[in-house]
Design a protein around this nucleic acid. Structure first.
Length: 656
DNA sequence: AGCACGCCGACT
DNA sequence: GTCGGCGTGCTC
């Protein structure tokens, strides 16, 4: 036996029973190109068919005792699945009882032959100058700097201001903090992975990065790009030069050269929660990657998620606050009718209206409203006036197209509705809450330019001129110089949502909006009192997270414990649960979901995670390989019993 | 998933 | 005696 002639291959298949390494002989002709990380085609089931896969490692002798098949071909000479990422994929999959292949699909973009040829020819490689970095502004000198160099783990409070990153270009100050941290890593000859929840954040971060790094050091890598763009960016990561790699959640799997820093902005944003199996959250993937590589890890945010708070309390993360402390001026106010008729119609309390009116003399004012489509609004077909509850003036909405319109506030059914203006009786949907509110708000501030920003009408930034910006939460544009006032109008509605995370979410939405205000400009929180309001007013989000986590501990809710939702036929679910050996009080359910399918939530302590994941994974595999028996007994046309599905750390079921 | 192997009912 | 039904199991 000569050197390493056996390739261990990860086969690209969604089948859980194939989620392991298969040994193949490397034929003489492929000895040169068959290196770890390359894409290969291999026969599966004795030349029956071919599958795609990746060589994960080369060994002298495998543990498989049967006859080995030959690798059929090496698809491309580029080692796209680096050993580091292969190990990470395995770990992430194991933690979530999923397939490594599913992680690899997030980590490695589809091959683009033209892009690959051009890259291999070397036309795409820019010349790299050494990076010179400055300090990270706004924090105790040397603290973040040494953490990045020495590979510490931090939870950093973002500075709640906006900043001009280049002439005329404004971004949240957090983006500059991230960019400066990345520059430090690059200066030390290491790459930085920067993960942000959405493209809006990405734009700000890119602008900030361009202010501290040369363009060729910045790579943008995420699933929203076209396939060629994404693959081109991906290949740049493989060039071996230190880069700042920016993207959304799956960027944490990028094949960064000499990784020095993973930094996550606003980890509480639900967009960091991966919707694809095995549903590994950016935060968890980042933690795994940090452990694996020893790189620095920084969670940056205006608010602290309960998950990060847990890690802080475990001393796994060290907190860092800005100096000097910056605290937005927040004024909580009860929902009250304004004396001004137009303001009253728009449901703006007098304090908020006065502040906004004064601020509009100086510059833009932000009004944050609830999400569009959250409760669809209705308007009169004839005159366009938004439909109001005849009892309480609340907005009317419809749960489904067929249901009777109901009041969004008091819940009264509006079966006999008629328009108060024109006596019309027919209703139509108005898509966005912001659209409806904009009319009313516009009337409350006559003569002011109105700008709307929501999911359908994205607006990333605006100038410093007076304007009323009406934005749904999370869609707020950055204003040059900051807003002169911020009105958080629908706080009551947002806080009324039934969800385990409602407090955290509201605080995050409001804090992120307040951070867009100019220094000293007022942020007015309408209609919300209690702990949430006082937390925002005192800007002590960490204290809130501590309280919240303590509550979760008492209730044994995540993230004080981990959870797994187990879904499938009653039989499959119950037999899976029997193998887990968890006390019955930690099994919530089963409850019926779809017909023939039940769901049980299992909760368990973090130190049982590996055991639970392993046991559930075994059950998933067992179910996948013996499932057809049940289907066949019932007859061909019988509905397929749903296979056993597990999902770890999903808090959505707690919304109910 | 596919595809082969295997163990019981009607057939030239 | 054999052909073929689908249930069961495996994939290097």
């Amino acid at each position: 036996m000569a050197t390493a002639s056996i390739a261990r291959v990860l086969v690209d298949s969604p089948l859980p029973q194939l989620d392991r390494l298969f040994d193949y002989r490397v034929p003489e002709a492929l000895r040169e190109s068959a290196v770890p990380g390359v894409r290969v085609r291999v026969p599966l089931r004795s030349a029956g068919r071919v599958a795609d896969g990746y060589i994960v490692e080369l060994v002298d002798s495998g543990d498989f005792t049967g006859t080995l098949s030959d690798i059929e071909s090496v698809v491309s000479p580029i080692a796209v699945l680096t050993p580091e990422v292969a190990v990470l994929a395995r770990k992430a999959a194991d933690r979530a009882a999923g397939s490594a292949t599913d992680i690899v699909r997030l980590a490695v973009p589809g091959r683009q032959v033209r892009v690959e040829k051009s890259w291999l020819a070397g036309d795409d490689r820019p010349v790299m100058e050494p990076v010179v970095a400055g300090p990270v502004d706004g924090y105790p000198l040397g603290l973040i700097e040494s953490a990045v160099i020495e590979g510490h783990r931090l939870a950093v409070d973002a500075v709640p201001l906006v900043t001009e990153v280049s002439p005329g270009v404004w971004a949240g100050r957090w983006a500059l903090t991230m960019a400066q941290s990345a520059a430090l890593a690059l200066e030390a000859g290491k790459s930085a992975i920067l993960s942000v929840p959405d493209y809006r954040d990405q734009e700000q971060l890119m602008a900030a990065l361009h202010s501290v790094l040369p363009a060729e050091r910045i790579v943008h890598l995420d699933a929203r790009q076209s396939n060629p763009d994404r693959y081109r960016a991906f290949l740049r990561c493989l060039e071996g030069q230190p880069l700042a790699i920016v993207g959304n959640r799956s960027v944490v799997y990028a094949p960064a050269a000499n990784l020095g820093l993973v930094m996550v902005w606003d980890d509480g944003d639900p967009l960091h929660s991966e919707p694809l199996s095995p549903y590994v959250h950016t935060r968890d993937a980042a933690l795994l990657r940090q452990e694996q590589s020893g790189c620095a890890l920084i969670f940056l945010g205006h608010t602290r998620s309960t998950e990060v708070e847990r890690l802080v309390e475990l001393r796994w993360l060290t907190t860092v606050s800005s100096t000097p402390a910056v605290r937005p001026k927040v004024i909580p106010t009860a929902q009250q009718t304004s004396t001004d008729r137009l303001a009253a119609q728009a449901r703006i309390p007098s304090i908020a209206w006065r502040e906004a009116k004064a601020a509009l003399e100086r510059g833009p004012v932000l009004i944050q409203v609830a999400r569009p489509g959250y409760a669809p609004r209705l308007a009169c077909v004839d005159c366009g006036q938004s439909a109001r509850c005849l009892k309480c003036e609340g907005p009317l909405g419809q749960k489904t197209a067929r249901s009777i319109p109901a009041c969004g506030w008091c819940g009264a059914l509006a079966a006999e509705w008629h328009c108060e203006l024109c006596e019309g009786t027919r209703l139509r949907f108005v898509g966005a809450t912001a659209g409806r509110t904009a009319e009313d708000l516009g009337r409350a501030f006559p003569g002011v330019r109105i700008l709307i920003a929501d999911g359908d009408r994205p607006l990333l930034s605006i100038g410093a001129e007076p304007a009323l910006v009406i934005a749904t939460r999370g869609a707020e544009p950055v204003a040059a110089g900051g807003y002169q006032a911020v009105l958080l109008l629908d706080g009551e509605q947002m806080a009324a949502r039934e969800s385990l995370r409602v407090g955290e979410d509201c605080l995050r939405w409001w804090s992120n909006a307040a951070a867009l205000a100019a220094r000293g400009a007022p942020t007015i929180l309408v209609g919300v009192g209690g702990l949430l309001a006082s937390t925002l007013a005192t800007w002590r989000q960490a204290d809130y997270a501590r309280t919240e986590l303590a509550d979760r501990r008492r209730l044994r809710f995540p993230p004080a414990v981990r959870v797994a939702t187990v879904t499938g036929s009653l039989d499959a679910v119950s037999s899976a649960l029997q193998t887990l050996e968890v006390p019955t009080e930690d099994l919530l359910g089963p409850v019926d979901t779809e017909p023939g399918s039940v769901r049980t939530i299992v909760r368990f302590d973090y130190n049982s995670g590996a055991r639970i994941a392993g046991a559930l994974r075994a059950e998933v595999i067992r179910n996948a390989t013996t499932r057809r028996k049940a289907a066949a007994i019932k007859g061909k046309r019988a509905p397929l019993p749903p296979s056993l599905r597990v999902r770890f750390d999903d808090v959505e079921p707690f919304a109910e």
